[in-house]
Every structure is written in structure tokens, then in C-alpha cells.
Amino acid sequence: MLPPAAQLTAQQQALQTRLLQFIQVHQHDETTAVFVLHGDAGSGKSAVLNAVFTTLQHQAHQPDSALAVLHNRLLVNHNEMLKIYWAVAAADPLLHKSDFQKPTPFINAATKQHRRYDVVFVDEAQLLLSQKDAFNHFDQANQLDALLPLAHVVVLVVDFNQVVKLKSLWTPAMLKQHLAGHQVESAELTHQLRMQDPAVSAWINAFVAGRLLPLPKPADYELRVFPDGAPLVAWVRAKEAEYGLARLIATTDFPFRVFGTRTWYVQAGSVRLPWDKINFTDRPWASRPETLGEVGSIYTIQGFDLNAAGVILGPSLDYDEATDRLTVDPSRFEDQTAFRRRPDLADDEAAKAAIIRHVANILLKRGRRALGIYAVNPRLRARLLALAQ
């Protein structure tokens, strides 16, 4: 799902050159230099990161290169995204599976070994833990502070609109505070590359911000609203047969438990479908044929491109007729691990509501060629159907 460097846009290629120059200039700095790459979901951030990392690993094997013999790692705190990078490594003889890791084992091992790497890349850096987490065997204050001493250069890919847990809550102000005293350069990717029509992306941006606008009628993108889950399921199966990589995904508004053998379900109108299960294989969830009968979540789809996404908006998202706006109710959001209380947050409810909006934004922007929507709450469903006319 990650395109080769030859397929990068002009904006991405210019950024790749700039990043490599930054690394060359700062590769021997004692105080860690940091490059921060911003961009919306689908703007091609991971593609640039992959291209730069692959170039760096290739040049590390060339004795006459200015970037020779560097020791580098790429980290991502998301199981399914890590599998995508492992697939990239399997296709390139100069890349290794061990080049790609999750932050916690990398931090713990490098800290124990007193080892400093040359360049550490962090994809989905907004998923770095911003507090201690015994469940993940991380006992330092936060993962960014723990990472900085472990590399001469750190490259962070950040989208604050994809923060999905309080324990990994990051804001622009927090990032600036933690990077104080470091040489910092930043850039932003502004083009929407995943979704093939910018009007659809703009409509989603308005929707998650609360504004419900008439649905655009793009010529090269299919955007539909469904009155029930059954036709949405049939539509996704038709898209899978037509061009592949079509899946059902939902906001984490339906009961589930991560561990155990019980099957948990998503109720979408007249249909009841099983949630995705823990994926112990090396293949990303959406690339496995058997998952066509499941419903994916942010835990299995974040960072992955689908051709068609059938999105089920759960009970936490509703509609206020008086204000004509989307409403968010954190008490109806089932992913309570995302809301594990933090004593350092003054306004938990605002942070919780923001997380739900982020989840909706991530899911609605998965489809490259088509997006189908079913809303569980009748008021929101009726309003969306009216806006589609």
C-alpha cells in the first residue's frame, strides 16, 4: 500500500530531498535535531517517510555516500501499520524486518544498551504514549522524551487529528514544549492523495467539525448514504468484486473486548456483523479475504488505504435538529480504554469528544474511490439521507 519513490508527487519528492539534506547536515549533532512532518489523513506522509527511510538504508550500504554506515530505525505504534512496513521490507533485499519496530521495545532495548542511533523515524507519532503505561511495559514519563536521547536525528510524522486515546494525547503546544532546546524544522503535506476527489475530503472535514452540508456529486468518486446496514453490506461486497480492497469499518461504539474468545458484534440496522478479531498474522487485516465478513476499526484500518470504505457511524454520533449540527456523546462510546482518566487533563469531556471526531475522520477518509455511510442514530441517518438528495 506504500508507493515506491518513483510514484511520489512533485511535492513529496521535494520534501524527500529536503529531509535527506536535513539528515546529512545534522547526522552528527550531539543535541538531537528533529524534523516534524504534518499532514491530514491521506496526504501521503507515510509514503514520503518510507521513501526517505528506504533511500537512507540503501545509501548506508554505499561506502562513498555521505550517509554511509548510518544505523537507523523506523517506529510506528500501530500493529497493522507495522505489518505494512514489514511487507515493504520483504520486497527489498536491503531492508530488514528488524528495521521496523514499535516504540516501546525499541526504547527499552536502546536505553538498556546505552545505544544511540543515527536517525529514528516515527510514523503516526501522535500515537506515542504521553504518559506511563504499565500495560505496554513503558515506565518513563512519555515516549517522545525517551526517544530524543536515543538518536542524532528524529523524524516525526504527526497528525493531531488522528489522536485516538487519552494516553497518547498530543497537542501542538505539548509538542512544542517537549522539543524546546532542539533544532527543529517542520513541513506540511497539503494535497489529499488517498481520496480521489477533494470535494469529498472537504465535506468530511466539515462533517467531523459539526457542519452537515449537502453531499457533493463528484464525477470520479462514489459517495453514498444508506438507509440500512443491509444495502451497505451488499454495496461493499459489490465493490470488493469490482476492484478489491472494499471493507466495512465502524466507530468503536459497539461492545467489544480485546482479549478472550467471545465474538463481539456490530449492529447496523437489520444486520449484525462480527467485529474484527486480533490479527496474529503478518498480513494487514484488510488484505485478508476472510475479513470481508467482519467490521474493521481504527485498530485494524488506521494508516491503510481501501478502494471502498463502508463506514458505520455508531451511537455516539447524532444530530441536533435545532442547530443543524453533528453532536457527540462520549457516554455512548464503547472504547473506554481510550478514555482512561488522566489527572493532568483539566477538561476530560472535551478531549473525549475530540477523540470520537478523530475516529470518524480516520474512518471516513479510508476509501480511495468510494465511501458508503450508514448512521445508527435515526436523526443523523435521516439528515444525511436528506443531504444526499
Rank of each mutant, 00 (worst) to 15 (best):
A5V: 12
L8S: 00
Q11H: 10
T17G: 08
F22V: 06
D29A: 14
A33C: 09
V34R: 07
V34H: 00
G44M: 01
K45Q: 11
A47K: 04
A66H: 15
L67V: 14
V69T: 11
H71A: 04
H71T: 10
L75S: 08
L75R: 10
N79P: 07
E80S: 03
A87E: 15
A89R: 08
A89Y: 00
P93H: 13
P93C: 11
L94H: 12
P103N: 13
F106E: 09
F106A: 15
I107C: 12
I107W: 11
Q113H: 14
Q113P: 12
Q113F: 15
Y117G: 09
D118S: 14
E124A: 06
A125N: 02
Q126A: 07
Q126K: 02
A134Q: 10
F135N: 12
F135H: 09
H137T: 04
F138Q: 02
D139Q: 13
Q143P: 11
Q143L: 06
L156M: 00
K165C: 11
K165M: 06
L169A: 08
P172W: 02
M174L: 08
Q177A: 14
A180V: 10
L189H: 04
L189T: 02
L193E: 06
R194S: 09
Q196G: 00
I204M: 02
F207N: 03
V208W: 04
L212V: 13
L213T: 10
P214H: 01
L215W: 00
P216F: 06
P231A: 04
W235H: 01
V236I: 15
F254H: 00
F254Q: 03
P255R: 13
R257Q: 15
T263F: 08
Q267D: 13
V271R: 08
P274R: 10
D276A: 15
I278N: 13
N279P: 13
N279I: 15
W285Q: 12
L292M: 02
G293Y: 09
E294L: 08
S297N: 07
I298G: 06
Y299M: 02
G303V: 01
F304S: 07
L306C: 03
L306F: 03
G314R: 06
G314K: 05
P315W: 04
P315L: 04
Y319M: 09
T323I: 13
L326P: 05
D329L: 05
R332K: 13
D335H: 05
Q336A: 15
Q336K: 14
R341W: 08
P343Y: 10
A346Q: 10
A350N: 10
H358T: 10
H358F: 14
I362R: 04
K365W: 06
A370D: 03
G372T: 02
I373Q: 03
I373A: 09
P378A: 12
P378N: 06
R383T: 05
R383Y: 02
